[in-house]
Nucleic acid binder design. Structure first.
Lengths: 262, 262
DNA sequence: TACAAACGTCTCTTGTAAGAGACGATCGCT
DNA sequence: AGCGATCGTCTCTTACAAGAGACGTTTGTA
């Protein structure tokens, strides 16, 4: 149990010191490679996931043989393999919303010049599933696959719309309510925000994760009332009211086109 | 049994009927989902990978929690999850060749109207990594991620160019030398083909995997002399000599643009 | 050239997870 | 309603993998 949640929160977390299940080792390795975003030596990998070297060698060998990982060019580093790419494409193929959502996001960022993102809940956490960087000289961009606490984002407020208070509390930890700059959010305020977002059908946050950006988010429905994802635009915080309104309009159009029911 | 051994081939050693490692169960499950290309019930999944039901439930639960799998809409079926998509995108990001290769392949199929594919070796087997279907009324298409015996394909002859005879023998099983229609290839002929392909810088096969198609393949180099992938066009077998020559020319241009050294 | 650190492989032990199977709850068919 | 098939969960046993650690090799640096 503890192990599961430790893994969920972060990979560099210490283990309980006892023996670890092989499957968990695999998950930790994958997650670690996802954070490093580059090939890494097996020894470093072992350190990174805090696993014994011998175990790491064994697990990595299995994964390389299976094609989930590949040895990188120089021969003693590993990174993701073709199999994961193929499975990932299978996921896209089987997921209309994602496939179309990617297109809409790409289109939106071309149309507006702003950074645009498609976001979803994943295992109860907020994830940027696809992002398209926009054309500003100084880009505001986020890594896809990044996990951010729900209360830090506009999208988070929409993704939780429709859940019971108890469910929301379960998904939000104490730490999640502390912003990067140290400010504290109140759970009640957050829940109020969620209700508002639900009622108005959009959510705008300013200077939440950092001091320079404003985030406009709208829901994407997979069925009437069921919010499956959000589309959002990340814009400079000093964007005028007028332009913000216009962008929100475009965003809503795109999201509506993507939604089923709503 | 048939299922088990068929899977065992792609995943690793066949099961002796004894206890199976958890990691292997995971690999089998992923591979099975890749072949079905759709969400499947856990019970059926257990049957499909020839695993005990209780084990399958446990493993699937772990994978769902980790986000590698997701429960499909109705709630009792599973398929690939967002995590696999994210890891797959990481792979693409870290792999210039694949990223650019996809573009070239897409362009080529638009330009020629024919089915175009990017192929690579994976764990010593031939894999269609990306394919773009072309515009003919009756499309000739292959599933991406499909594993085909090397001797059945034009690309296979190029991908093995530069290997020692012993290495080639190790990669090719007896079964691989039997074509789908029952004809047998001779290993020596295959090795001669490889040498020829290497010398001429392309390979054309006619009516090998089926009676209707011709396959034109050219190498993609990742370093001087190192063939990392192939690009190929799949065309009707009655395509004229002249058009075949023209297509081959286009193909070589595209592959050259993709190659580093050569 | 010598030394330290990291690499890759092996062996052996023991904690633990894979699997058999039972259980009640649902489902679907007649 | 009655029946069989499948579902999802649970318990318990033991076969086996996770891990500690030793070993020889390679790397790099003083």
């Amino acid at each position: 149990m503890q192990d599961g949640s430790a893994l969920a929160v972060s990979v560099g977390q210490k283990t309980g010191g006892s023996r670890e299940k092989g499957l968990n080792r695999v998950l930790e390795i994958l997650e670690f490679l996802h954070t490093t975003q580059r090939a890494i030596g097996i020894g470093d990998l072992a350190k990174g996931v805090n696993a014994p070297r011998s175990t790491t060698y064994t697990v990595v060998r299995s994964l390389v043989e299976a094609g989930l990982l590949e040895m990188a060019g120089d021969g003693n580093r590993v990174y993701f393999g073709k199999k994961l790419y193929l499975y990932g494409m299978d996921y896209v193929r089987g997921n209309d919303l994602l496939r179309r959502g990617r297109q809409e996001v790409d289109h939106l960022s071309r149309e507006t010049g702003e950074t645009s993102e498609l976001c979803m809940l994943q295992s109860g956490r907020y994830t940027i599933v696809h992002s398209s960087p926009g054309t500003r000289p100084f880009r505001i961009s986020s890594a896809t696959g990044l996990q951010i606490p729900l209360p830090w984002t506009a999208s988070g407020r929409l993704l939780l719309a429709g859940l019971e208070r108890a469910d929301i509390e379960a998904m939000v930890s104490e730490d999640d309510l502390t912003l990067p700059d140290g400010r504290r959010l109140l759970l009640d305020d957050f829940i109020t925000d969620i209700a508002t977002a639900r009622a108005t059908g959009y959510c705008v946050t300013s200077g939440l994760v950092d001091a320079y950006t404003k985030c406009l988010a709208v829901p994407v429905f997979s069925a009437p009332g069921k919010i499956e994802a959000t589309m959002c635009l990340v814009v400079p915080i000093d964007t005028s009211e007028e332009r913000t309104g216009n962008l929100l309009g475009l965003l809503r159009d795109r999201a509506a086109r993507l939604s089923i029911g709503g």
